Amino acid sequence: MSNQNTTGHQWRLDWPTSHGRVARAQLKSVPEDFRVEEVLTVSDLIPGEGEHLCLCLEKTGDNTEFVARQLARMAGCRGFDVGFCGLKDRHAVTTQWFSLYRPGMEASDDYFIREVDGHWRVLASARAPRKLRRGEHSANRFAIVLRNVEGSKAEIDEALDRLGEQGAPNYFGPQRFGHDGGNLDRALKMDPSQLNRRKGRAKRGSRGGRDGSKNVLYFSAARSWLFNEVLATRVSDGSWNTCLSGEPAESAAGPTGPMWGDGGTTATDGQEAVERDVVGKWPELERLFAATRMQPERRPLVVQPQELDWEWQGGDTLFICFVLPPGQYATTVLGDIFELEDMSLGRHNE
């Protein structure tokens, strides 16, 4: 499926699945139907002493960046002084850690924690020597309820068994690309050379720093969309879960695809040819990367859920739980089997 927006561009935002979808289901009918727990090695990252106060919060209806801004306001610190490991869904019940730079303020921690607990439930707290950084958590644990499931239970059970054994194509979720691919249209209009000056501007606190952050978002959307296009080609030809000749040596754990950068891809031989052929069909996006110093990277083509389990709750309600590494999407995993209707979007979000 391609989406055409007011700019006239058509962006594919729904990509081929591994074996075809076997059912329909409604997702996020209520926030409690989508639970996410951040898995963090607390003993390593939050040892109990240091200048940063770390709080494990349970939140509903608020996204991560909103909570971080509110915590900074409550603590009287800069937004930069609040750390977290990853972005969590707004329309969900999520548990995650935040760090706040509060040097020499240990005596008032209890008072501050009670203030925060008035907004979000504080599950745990401890001190740490440095702020939490993106991607430092080890995994995310999901507990999801699908409602009004339409399809054969036998076929769904079989598909879930196969998912546990083979995994699913590791697409980036369509939310990354904005409404009708709007973030991709904005990427085409941006000056990629601005990315190289973003950090300096951000340090001076100028408007350029904020605009630079948006440019990074649009640039990331373009990079992710090209990855999805390469993965879609590999799904279509049946090679998505197999290493091809030319797979980079550092990707020995399994097949990977390109996170495009200056120079394109680190793949060689036949795999390089496939990736450059796909990306070459989108020269407007490809040339964004020539003006940056962004190094090419790799991302697994296969997302493999761990601890996958499920239970039918009545005739058309299905409970599913699993664990994913950071940066991988529960909706991508489920979307390989189900045509999902997100009830938190559009009129359901009023």
Score class of each variant (00 low, 15 high):
L231S: 08
V30N: 07
G335T: 07
E250P: 07
Q4C: 02
F319Q: 14
R197M: 09
R147L: 01
E115A: 15
T332A: 14
D109P: 02
W240R: 00
G164D: 02
R234F: 06
F112L: 08
T265G: 05
S125T: 08
R176Q: 02
V302H: 03
W312M: 07
V274D: 08
C243Q: 15
L324E: 03
E286D: 15
K88S: 09
V122D: 10
E106P: 01
A23T: 03
V278Y: 01
E307H: 13
M74H: 04
K281F: 03
T60E: 14
K88H: 02
P300W: 12
T256F: 10
G254D: 06
V22I: 03
T332Q: 07
M294E: 14
L123V: 03
G61C: 03
S193W: 08
N196D: 12
V302E: 12
R121F: 00
D117M: 01
P31G: 00
V278D: 02
G167N: 05
L285T: 11
S152M: 06
T268K: 14
R78E: 08
G261S: 03
M1F: 04
D336H: 13
K203T: 10
T242Y: 15
T64Y: 03
R69Q: 09
G263R: 03
D336G: 03
W282Y: 12
A252T: 09
R12V: 15
L308C: 02
K88E: 00
A222G: 14
A68F: 07
Y171I: 05
E311L: 15
V235Y: 00
R134S: 09
A252W: 15
R234L: 07
D191I: 02
A124R: 12
T331R: 10
H179N: 12
L40F: 08
R198W: 15
P103F: 12
S193N: 05
H348E: 15
W282V: 10
L324V: 03
D44Y: 00
C77Q: 08
A23W: 01
R24P: 13
G208T: 03
M190G: 06
N241L: 04
K153Q: 14
S2G: 14
S220R: 12
R12L: 15
D89A: 06
S193H: 09
T17D: 04
P325K: 09
T6W: 11
L123C: 04
I320N: 02
G209Q: 07
R299T: 00
N148L: 13
G208F: 11
D157V: 01
N140P: 00
R12T: 15
